[in-house]
Protein backbone atom coordinates (compact mmCIF):
# COMPACT_ATOMS: atom_id res chain seq x y z
CA UNK A 1 0.00 0.00 0.00
CA UNK A 2 2.84 2.34 0.87
CA UNK A 3 4.44 1.80 -2.52
CA UNK A 4 1.18 2.70 -4.25
CA UNK A 5 0.97 5.89 -2.20
CA UNK A 6 4.53 6.79 -3.08
CA UNK A 7 3.87 6.13 -6.77
CA UNK A 8 0.77 8.30 -6.73
CA UNK A 9 2.65 11.12 -5.04
CA UNK A 10 5.60 10.88 -7.42
CA UNK A 11 3.39 10.81 -10.50
CA UNK A 12 1.35 13.79 -9.26
CA UNK A 13 4.53 15.69 -8.53
CA UNK A 14 5.91 14.95 -11.97
CA UNK A 15 2.69 16.08 -13.63
CA UNK A 16 2.76 19.29 -11.61
CA UNK A 17 6.42 19.85 -12.50
CA UNK A 18 5.54 19.28 -16.14
CA UNK A 19 2.74 21.80 -15.79
CA UNK A 20 5.15 24.47 -14.58
CA UNK A 21 7.16 24.17 -17.79
CA UNK A 22 4.53 26.19 -19.62
CA UNK A 23 4.50 28.96 -17.07
CA UNK A 24 6.00 32.26 -18.16
CA UNK A 25 9.49 33.08 -16.96
CA UNK A 26 9.96 34.83 -13.67
CA UNK A 27 9.47 38.57 -14.11
CA UNK A 28 8.64 38.26 -17.80
CA UNK A 29 7.04 41.55 -18.93
CA UNK A 30 5.50 39.86 -21.97
CA UNK A 31 3.61 37.20 -20.10
CA UNK A 32 -0.19 37.35 -20.46
CA UNK A 33 -0.69 38.20 -16.79
CA UNK A 34 1.48 41.28 -16.93
CA UNK A 35 0.08 42.59 -20.21
CA UNK A 36 -3.58 42.93 -19.32
CA UNK A 37 -4.00 45.48 -16.51
CA UNK A 38 -0.59 45.61 -14.88
CA UNK A 39 0.89 48.29 -17.18
CA UNK A 40 -2.04 50.53 -16.36
CA UNK A 41 -1.51 50.05 -12.66
CA UNK A 42 2.21 50.65 -12.92
CA UNK A 43 1.90 53.82 -14.95
CA UNK A 44 -1.17 55.30 -13.24
CA UNK A 45 -1.13 54.22 -9.63
CA UNK A 46 1.35 56.70 -8.20
CA UNK A 47 -0.23 59.61 -10.02
CA UNK A 48 -3.86 58.81 -9.39
CA UNK A 49 -3.75 57.52 -5.84
CA UNK A 50 -0.80 59.48 -4.42
CA UNK A 51 0.52 56.22 -3.01
CA UNK A 52 4.15 55.42 -3.84
CA UNK A 53 3.79 51.76 -2.90
CA UNK A 54 1.94 50.26 -5.85
CA UNK A 55 1.24 47.03 -4.01
CA UNK A 56 -0.79 48.89 -1.40
CA UNK A 57 -2.54 50.90 -4.08
CA UNK A 58 -3.59 47.76 -5.92
CA UNK A 59 -4.50 45.90 -2.75
CA UNK A 60 -6.48 48.62 -1.03
CA UNK A 61 -7.78 50.72 -3.89
CA UNK A 62 -8.08 48.92 -7.23
CA UNK A 63 -8.82 45.58 -5.62
CA UNK A 64 -10.44 46.77 -2.43
CA UNK A 65 -13.37 44.40 -2.86
CA UNK A 66 -10.87 41.56 -2.48
CA UNK A 67 -9.47 43.03 0.68
CA UNK A 68 -12.96 43.62 2.04
CA UNK A 69 -13.71 39.96 1.44
CA UNK A 70 -10.47 38.99 3.12
CA UNK A 71 -11.29 41.05 6.18
CA UNK A 72 -14.79 39.58 6.28
CA UNK A 73 -13.30 36.07 6.15
CA UNK A 74 -10.99 36.81 9.05
CA UNK A 75 -13.82 38.40 10.98
CA UNK A 76 -16.11 35.42 10.47
CA UNK A 77 -13.29 33.07 11.47
CA UNK A 78 -12.89 34.99 14.70
CA UNK A 79 -16.64 34.95 15.30
CA UNK A 80 -16.71 31.19 14.68
CA UNK A 81 -13.94 30.74 17.24
CA UNK A 82 -15.84 32.81 19.76
CA UNK A 83 -19.05 30.88 19.18
CA UNK A 84 -17.42 27.46 19.34
CA UNK A 85 -14.82 27.87 22.04
CA UNK A 86 -15.90 30.58 24.42
CA UNK A 87 -17.93 29.47 27.40
CA UNK A 88 -19.89 31.58 29.75
CA UNK A 89 -18.48 32.23 33.16
CA UNK A 90 -20.27 30.61 36.03
CA UNK A 91 -21.51 33.21 38.41
Amino acid sequence: MKIVNLLVVIITGMVLAYGTMDMPDWGDPNSPASRHVSPGYISDAVEKTATPNIVTAVLADYRSYDTLGETAVIFSAGMACILLLRRKRKK
Binding site: K48, T49, A50, T56, A60, D61, S64, F75, A77, G78
Partner: peptide, 26 residues
Protein backbone atom coordinates in the same frame (compact mmCIF):
# COMPACT_ATOMS: atom_id res chain seq x y z
CA UNK B 1 -5.64 61.63 -5.74
CA UNK B 2 -4.94 62.64 -2.18
CA UNK B 3 -8.44 61.58 -1.19
CA UNK B 4 -7.72 58.12 -2.53
CA UNK B 5 -4.56 58.02 -0.44
CA UNK B 6 -6.52 58.99 2.65
CA UNK B 7 -9.18 56.41 1.84
CA UNK B 8 -6.48 53.74 1.66
CA UNK B 9 -5.24 54.87 5.07
CA UNK B 10 -8.76 54.62 6.46
CA UNK B 11 -9.34 51.09 5.32
CA UNK B 12 -5.86 50.07 6.47
CA UNK B 13 -6.83 51.21 9.94
CA UNK B 14 -10.05 49.21 9.69
CA UNK B 15 -8.24 46.08 8.53
CA UNK B 16 -5.62 46.51 11.23
CA UNK B 17 -8.22 46.79 13.99
CA UNK B 18 -10.18 43.80 12.75
CA UNK B 19 -7.12 41.59 12.30
CA UNK B 20 -5.66 42.56 15.67
CA UNK B 21 -8.87 41.86 17.52
CA UNK B 22 -9.60 38.61 15.72
CA UNK B 23 -6.10 37.20 16.12
CA UNK B 24 -6.06 38.04 19.79
CA UNK B 25 -9.53 36.66 20.40
CA UNK B 26 -8.69 33.42 18.60
Amino acid sequence: AHARSLGILGIEIGVGLAVMAVMFSV
